[in-house]
């Protein structure tokens, strides 16, 4: 089994920035977006997020799966929430409102009557919700495609995570190719014994239970290898001193600019929301 990350160098504008600056920007924008329900303010964040996608030089072909995931998820949530259950959320949709569509539905056998009303307010709220989810989704969608997996450990260390935590992340990335190879060897070995993973039949419980011949050997082999790795690291006095990293990161002027703008946006959003009390649900009258 070939396990590969979605990252490849694209020499895009976004990749010029330090990964730490990009994480700070993404988190600042996330916390800013979730403050608002005003579609005008959300449109600003939507434009910023989409701009990032374009600046990352991502193609539809490589991001199709992620986009479909975000679109299906958001559409389902919006359909169920705003259109069906009525959107009584923390966003505070005004109850009542101007009806756009209404009908009565009589359910056969039970005789229940459903009186459905879709208001203008609900539709605008659905749009605000859509902008919000897409903005957040596209903000983080860019990261796996444009951030070098080798730099995750040092990036999170640079953001302020403890050495051991950052190293755990780094180590996890390093284990992936080995474990993927072990999985493939196990799968081939089990197939040679007549195990047919594609033809697992039975109910849900049986299907899950029958994953055990794949999961158990791979997991137990990894644990046995882990004991040796722990011993090797202990022998090299892991964790006794501050760690140094092979990859090094250095902020450039452009990174300070990005961090500054991100902080400005976050502070501005907090002021707008909590000092000027702006940003509640809004729709054109």
């Amino acid at each position: 089994m070939l396990v590969s990350f979605s990252y490849r160098p694209r020499h895009s504008f976004i990749e010029r920035f330090d990964p730490r600056a990009r994480w700070i920007m993404s988190l600042a924008l996330l916390f800013s977006i979730v403050l608002f329900w005003d579609i005008r303010i959300l449109s600003f964040f939507f434009v910023l997020s989409i701009l990032q996608v374009f600046l990352a030089r991502l193609t539809w072909q490589e991001t199709r799966r992620a986009w479909l995931f975000i679109l299906v998820l958001s559409t389902m949530m919006i359909l169920v929430n705003t259109i069906i259950t009525g959107g009584g959320t923390i966003g505070g949709v005004i109850s009542g409102g101007k009806p756009l569509l209404q009908f009565q539905l009589k359910i056969p056998v039970t005789g229940w009557i459903i009186h459905y009303v879709l208001t203008r307010e609900r539709v605008w709220f659905a749009l605000a919700q859509f902008l919000r989810i897409i903005s957040i989704g596209s903000l983080f969608l860019v990261i796996p495609f444009t951030m070098d997996p080798r730099k995750y450990g040092v990036t999170f260390r640079g953001i302020g995570l403890p050495d051991k935590l950052a190293f755990t992340m780094d180590l996890a990335f390093r284990f992936i190719p080995t474990l993927a190879r072990d999985f493939q060897i196990t799968l081939d070995a089990q197939r040679a014994r007549g195990y047919e993973v594609e033809k697992i039949e039975g109910n849900l419980f049986t299907r899950i239970r029958r994953m055990a011949p794949l999961f158990v050997p791979v997991t137990m082999n990894a644990i046995l290898a882990g004991e040796d790795i722990t011993n090797a690291m202990d022998l090299r006095c892991f964790g006794l001193k501050k760690r140094t990293w092979v990859e090094s990161l250095k902020y450039q002027e452009i990174d300070y600019l990005m961090i500054g703008i991100s902080i400005l946006i976050l502070v501005g959003s907090l002021l707008l929301r909590f000092v000027f009390h702006t940003g509640d649900f809004w729709f054109p009258m």
């Binding site: 089994m1 396990v3 051991k164 190293f167 755990t168 992340m169 780094d170 180590l171 996890a172 990335f173 390093r174 284990f175 992936i176 474990l179 993927a180 999985f183 799968l187 999961f215 791979v218 997991t219 990894a222 644990i223 290898a225 882990g226 790795i229 722990t230 690291m233 202990d234 892991f238 964790g239």
Partner: peptide, 22 residues
């Protein structure tokens, strides 16, 4: 949270990632 925990957390994470993907 010592060396052993660092190693097994990394192995657990990598296994979860690889097996989910597989």
């Amino acid at each position: 949270f010592g060396t052993r925990e660092v190693v097994f957390a990394a192995i657990g994470a990598a296994l979860y990632g690889v097996l989910s993907y597989a």
